[in-house]
């Protein structure tokens, strides 16, 4: 799309995958947004950090394993992924447990990231 204004979009993800449809819906909107050459960031807070957990295998529940799609984001030029430090700690997770490269932010820095956006979409 050839517009002159590029806006800063932040997708806020706070739900675990599979139990509800929020995580998958968010990912689909992210991919669509990528087509419009905007400045897209993704934030993962609370249970949202579980979306990025390595080793997901959905054969047993007969749902699509969309965790693999997070690895495609780089090819869509979406490279700004932020994860909430406190959420990871509460869940006993570290960066090494996640399937993509992320920047870890504490809650205060997360708040500043939100303040810095033009558009926020919350899932």
């Amino acid at each position: 799309m050839s517009g002159d204004t590029i806006k800063k979009f932040l997708f806020v993800n706070r739900k675990a995958p599979y139990g509800t449809v929020y995580a998958l819906e968010s990912l689909e909107v992210v991919l669509i947004t990528a087509a419009f050459d905007q400045d897209v960031s993704l934030a993962f807070l609370d249970d949202g950090v579980y979306q990025l957990k390595k080793g997901q295998n959905t054969k047993g529940i007969e749902m699509k394993n969309f965790s693999l799609t997070y690895r495609a984001l780089e090819g869509y030029d979406i490279e700004k992924l932020f994860v909430e430090k406190e959420a990871m700690e509460a869940r006993g997770l570290t960066k090494e447990d996640l399937l993509v490269d992320v920047t870890v932010l504490d809650r205060q820095a997360m708040g500043q990231l939100m303040d810095d956006q033009d558009v926020i979409l919350s899932f």
Binding site: Y18, K53, Q56, K59, I61, A90
Partner: peptide, 30 residues
């Protein structure tokens, strides 16, 4: 799952309750 802030509370409940977890749902979530 072990290692979370809830582990203590969940673990303590086992004095009166038997806890089970569904494998396919665990595996789906890695």
């Amino acid at each position: 799952v072990a290692g979370t802030i809830l582990e203590k509370k969940v673990s303590a409940a086992q004095t009166k309750l038997k806890l089970h977890v569904l494998g396919p749902d665990l595996e789906a979530r890695g």
